[in-house]
């Protein structure tokens, strides 16, 4: 009896949150799934020409913009995530080892996290400026000719390198924060024991630090993969709504950018269904990779 009562009470307390979740999360998801399976959906009138099982998927998969978006998204994800995890790990270990100026460097590395991705995106774009940018000046010191990274008619490859560097740098901050707090939680005696046992620095890192930090590394890897699959703001920050260098529009389009672009064409019948199909495909990919990550973690993570 008592259980029944407390159950009612619990549901009552949950109600405000459930209503909000229902309106803003569950309804849009259901609606997105619905959109995928209707033909020629008209946003203004809410009408459609019957149901279809695969037409919207088929259309999206044959769309060149979607193919480009998929390629870019995968490239960004599988290069920037491992790169930033490894760099963040090395920086955290280094930060944890130094005594002087630790607070200062911690602040410096954390700054990207508290700044606006659009604003620093513009700053980064300028750093990659052909004539005045810091990057070309720097490689110029080694006698390398200025590269057209993000300027008029810049190639897809150059723009992608610049974008990945920017995303990697931007996502370092949070990773360093998590790794550093993880490192500070590791008992110093493990390191003293390893020292007495004549372990080299690289062995201490690989055999002690990484395994003991593995729960954090796993957490960061999973959330970073999910975040990277949804890359959008960084592209806007660096390239604006053209989604690419001037004269090479949409070269840096990502799946989420493609979905948002569909909103501009919402008057065109079927445009929203394409967006829904693209987002469901992305959702499926994210799900698969998270599942793979979890499976790997069962073997590799030591809690």
């Amino acid at each position: 009896m008592l259980e029944d009562q407390s159950n009612v009470k619990a549901w009552f307390y949950l109600l405000p949150a459930l209503i909000l979740l229902g309106i803003f999360i569950f309804y849009p998801i259901v609606n997105a799934v619905f959109l995928v399976f209707v033909d020629n959906y008209n946003y203004q009138t809410g009408t459609y020409d019957g149901f279809t099982l695969l037409d919207n998927f088929r259309y999206v998969l044959s769309d060149n913009n979607f193919r480009m978006a998929m390629l870019n998204t995968m490239l960004i994800t599988f290069v920037s995530v491992p790169l930033s995890v490894i760099i963040a790990l090395l920086i955290s270990v280094w930060l944890n080892a130094i005594k002087r100026m630790q607070g200062f460097f911690q602040t410096v590395f954390f700054l990207p996290y508290v700044t606006n991705a659009i604003a620093i995106g513009m700053a980064f774009a300028f750093m990659f400026n052909r004539r005045y940018g810091l990057i070309n000046w720097f490689i110029g010191l080694f006698g390398i000719e200025p590269v057209n990274w993000v300027g008029m008619g810049a190639s897809w490859g150059n723009a992608m390198i610049a974008l990945i560097i920017y995303i990697t740098w931007l996502t370092l901050a949070f990773k360093i924060l998590v790794f550093l707090s993880g490192l500070q939680g590791i008992d110093k005696q493990y390191y003293e024991a390893a020292r007495v046992d004549s372990a080299s620095k690289s062995r201490v890192f690989l055999k002690i630090t990484v395994p003991l930090l593995s729960p954090m590394i796993m957490y960061i890897t999973v959330t970073s993969f999910i975040g990277a699959f949804k890359t959008y703001t960084e592209v806007i920050g660096m390239f604006g709504e053209r989604l690419g260098p001037p004269g090479n529009d949409r070269a840096m389009i990502t799946v989420v950018a493609l979905v948002y672009r569909a909103l501009d064409r919402s008057g065109v019948p079927g445009a929203l269904s394409e967006a829904a199909a693209a987002s469901l495909i992305l959702f499926a990919i994210t799900l698969v990779f998270t599942f793979i990550n979890m499976q790997v973690s069962k073997k590799r993570v030591h809690y």
Partner: peptide, 16 residues
């Protein structure tokens, strides 16, 4: 310490 040729057992063992 790594060159002294000592074995050290910590109070809380410090087993990995």
């Amino acid at each position: 310490p790594e060159e002294r040729g000592i074995g050290l057992v910590f109070q809380n063992y410090a087993l990995y």
